[in-house]
Design a protein around this nucleic acid. Structure first.
Lengths: 99, 99
DNA sequence: CGTGTAAGGAATTCTGACACG
DNA sequence: CGTGTAAGGAATTCTGACACG
């Protein structure tokens, strides 16, 4: 696992890095926009990728979007990616090509 | 600053990642082998590079080296690098070359 | 020298709730 | 809906010291 995706930061650091309040960060988790891991004791752990995602979320919030709208956008993006990958898989299977 | 060098991890995470005890990690700091940053409240913050360095230190310790020997090795390495860089600088100046 | 541990305190984080709008 | 805040408690970290070897 890369340094970018490894969950290692406490919420205080993430708050400093993103400019968001701990309250905001926890709320975005409640709204299924962000998914930190937990330590044994229950404290949240975030990755740099999470920090990037939070900054992206912050932008969208500033644009006036609601959390469920952002979540919907993310889901759409993922589904488009899936579609593209499945298409690529089918093409590969059909023509026996290797990338 | 890259994800590798940004100081963001608390000592508990570093302990998990390296397999070293917090006591050992603090001791290596006392012996000037590692240099975490501090939060306002005084808690230590480490980077992934620090984690790598700690694993390197752990190896050397297992080899039976003492902390001052490891510190001496590091210093030597740095000085060699400096020498090489200065030499490169002089050559560039002498021949007006650009890399 | 290098590391474990118990001690006491401080910084950090957690959750659920109330408030505002 | 999104966020601030005070509340109480728990997890985490801090330092200095003693112990062992």
């Amino acid at each position: 696992m890369s340094y970018k995706t490894k969950k290692v930061m406490p919420i205080g650091i993430v708050s400093e890095l993103t400019g968001l309040s701990p309250r905001q960060i926890r709320y975005y988790e409640e709204r299924k926009l962000i998914f930190p891991e937990r330590s044994e004791g229950g404290t949240r752990k975030y990755s740099f990728l999470d920090v990037e995602r939070l900054m992206y979320i912050a932008e969208k919030m500033e644009d006036g979007l609601q959390t469920y709208e952002i979540r919907r956008m993310e889901k759409q993006k993922n589904q488009e990616e899936l579609r593209r990958e499945m298409l690529r898989g089918q093409l590969n299977a059909a023509f026996r090509q290797r990338t």
